[in-house]
Nucleic acid binder design. Structure first.
Lengths: 153, 153
DNA sequence: GATCTTTTGTTGCATGCGCAACGATGTCAA
DNA sequence: TTGACATCGTTGCGCATGCAACAAAAGATC
């Protein structure tokens, strides 16, 4: 009778607008784009921005330190650092204690730049916090849970 | 006296772990990575997955439709669709009404694949919802606010 | 000390991306 | 109908990325 009719299983109801990984990706991309408006004028790419931020409050660190702390591939960090050095914003020296390590630090120029950019980044953060209002604490709590959770499988 | 001493402005206190754009980016990347475990076995890339999801509940659409709906570059959609067609998961036909449009739709094979993958994606979603617990509503609310907000400056 | 392993940072290579340019089709106005 | 303009999808190109391979340095083991 209907043996040559393709039986297509019914797909479950899937609403993309309710799907958390998708929503989170969209929101993250939007915030990243808006934040980039702050440092793009200074000629910084996103990886370069992250390295600069890390150097701003961590003093003298190695590539490996940044890789661990900011979860960037070490090759990404290495290339970002190379360009920052060329731009005169970062200084690369050999660690005297361990020859494998590279000691990255801000130059005076880099320091001056971050003194200009960081307040604007913080202002943006305050804007976001104001926008979230009463949901801010729950939001932070939820993010922390997601970041610290382990995959069940 | 100290006229040749470089005066370095003090950088504002900036804690990366409290910075919302960074936290959001980290969480989004983590969830995306975990979700990818579900569809990577099927040989799908992330853009391909998004196209498949959209086709799963939108029926027959054009490249432009997906571009608008899923906020992917049209070139990205185009290439993803081309590979999905090669893989036999998606069918590309010319829209009879408008020759410029391409009518994308799932093949039987694509339908079968999504019938297998979508429940697993939903299960992952349920895991996340369970993890967030009481913070879920606030979290969703906050995400909606961020996504719908307009840049002030 | 000699040898093997581990760690650190850079580089080569293949791949995917965004952007612009393009051809093809459709729309509008005169 | 014709010509100017808009829209859609693909493709070429430059560039960033992730991964693996690599050299240099440090550590471990004997």
């Amino acid at each position: 009778m209907d043996q040559d009719v393709e039986i297509e299983p019914v797909l479950p109801d899937f609403e993309l607008d309710d799907f958390l990984p998708y929503l989170l990706a969209e929101a993250a991309e939007k915030l990243s784009r808006e934040l980039a408006d702050i440092y793009r004028d200074a000629g910084l790419s996103t990886p370069q921005w992250r390295v600069m931020v890390h150097l701003s409050y961590s003093g003298q660190v190695s590539v490996r330190d940044i890789e661990r702390r900011v979860s960037m591939e070490k090759s990404k960090v290495s290339r970002a650092a190379a360009r920052l050095e060329t731009a005169g914003l970062v200084e690369k020296r050999a660690d005297p204690a361990d020859g494998r390590l590279v000691a990255l630090s801000l130059t005076g120029q880099g320091h001056t730049l971050m003194a200009r950019l960081l307040p604007r980044a913080l202002e943006y953060q305050h804007q976001l916090e104001g926008l979230l209002g009463a949901d801010l604490n729950g939001f932070r709590h939820a993010l922390a849970r997601l970041l610290n959770s382990e995959r069940r499988t």
